[in-house]
Simulated assay, not measured.
Amino acid sequence: MEDYFALYDLTDAHKLRLGKMTLQGVARQYWNFVEEQLYQLGQPPVIWDEMK
C-alpha cells in the first residue's frame, strides 16, 4: 500500500480511509471498536502511521 500511496502522493487522511476500506471481518469490527472508544474517551483519532 505504501508504494500506491507514494505514487499518488496521498494525505494521511486518505491513506487511513483506504486502509480502513481494505479491512474485512473481525479486523473491521475491531477497528470500528477502537475508533468508537477513542471518540468516547475524547482522544484524537488514529493517524496512518499508528494504523499500519
Rank of each mutant, 00 (worst) to 15 (best):
M1N: 09
M1Q: 13
M1I: 11
D3W: 02
D3M: 13
A6D: 11
L7Y: 14
L7F: 13
Y8R: 06
D9N: 14
L10D: 02
L10C: 11
H14A: 07
H14D: 14
H14P: 00
H14E: 15
L16H: 02
R17G: 12
R17L: 15
L18H: 08
L18C: 07
L18E: 12
G19F: 06
K20R: 14
M21N: 12
T22I: 12
Q24L: 11
Q24I: 14
Q24A: 10
V26Y: 11
V26Q: 13
R28T: 01
W31S: 03
W31A: 09
W31C: 06
W31N: 07
N32K: 07
F33C: 04
F33Q: 06
F33A: 10
V34D: 01
V34F: 01
V34A: 00
E35A: 10
Q37R: 10
L38P: 01
L38M: 08
Y39L: 06
L41T: 04
G42Q: 09
Q43W: 03
Q43V: 02
Q43H: 07
P44Y: 05
P44C: 04
P44A: 11
P45Y: 03
V46G: 02
I47L: 04
W48F: 15
W48E: 09
W48H: 11
W48Y: 15
D49Q: 12
D49F: 05
D49W: 04
E50V: 00
E50S: 06
M51H: 05
M51Y: 15
K52W: 01
K52V: 07
